[in-house]
Write a protein that binds this DNA or RNA. Structure first.
Lengths: 120, 120
DNA sequence: TGATCTAGTTACCTAAAGGAAACTGGGTCG
DNA sequence: CGACCCAGTTTCCTTTAGGTAACTAGATCA
């Protein structure tokens, strides 16, 4: 089977959809550093809602990218950690995040230039 | 200014939103190979509509990632090409696409395993 | 004159994404 | 007993993404 991401029927497209999910990428990057609990993620990832966090974590676990582990402490704590598969992806995602941080100014400048050019 | 992608107010977040756009990534990857015309992209990127293509191209141009160039041929042809800035991004995106192609089977297998585990 | 190429734009509409906030449930503290 | 912790789930509602399809416009060919 020839994989071609430009074909809509290609299974890679489905994975591509998952990858192009802002919350998933942020969570993956965060878990790459160390295992994190649910509410800790909720506090650290600014702007995410409980619902989206729960949903995204479930998807990531289903994809085999992260692992959920509940500890019978009181109150119960749940730790999310990255899997070996997830690690291979997150290293790429990391580069993407760094690109955004490094080139933010350049993109912003391009936008200003474009808007000025279009307005005139 | 400290850049922190986990903060919702951070400008990198805005760029991050743009990056996590399936069509943008596909177009960027395609243009990385060589300049392509509008209708050619429409034909090659399976499933994209005229509207989304036009919209995404405009965004990418505004971000300084691609360049639009019209030629006074008959009928007029418009060529989209990648910029230097876009090239730095697309090389990362490329790795992402290859990851999806290489690890598609592993993810699919994880999903099957997860679904079986949840059903029981 | 009407069809066809180019590269789009616009209007309409629907399906889905996702936010806010309330609620569950088990356990502990005061 | 009531308040508060964690880790979610559910409901409701609004906004947006994005698809379809029609339309613009200039030039050419038959």
């Amino acid at each position: 089977m020839e994989y071609n991401v430009y074909a809509s029927a290609c299974p890679t497209r489905m994975i591509f959809d998952r990858i192009s999910d802002k919350w998933a990428l942020l969570i993956l990057d965060r878990l790459c550093q160390q295992p994190v609990r649910f509410n800790q993620l909720l506090r650290e990832i600014d702007g995410i809602s409980q619902k989206m966090l729960s949903q995204t974590l479930k998807n990531l676990e289903r994809d085999g990218l992260i692992k959920r582990q509940a500890f019978p402490t009181v109150p119960v704590t749940v730790e999310y950690s990255i899997t070996a598969l997830g690690k291979t992806l997150s290293s790429t995602v990391n580069v993407l995040i760094h690109w955004a941080q490094d080139n933010g100014d350049a993109v912003l400048a391009a936008q200003v230039e474009y808007d000025g050019r279009m307005a005139s």
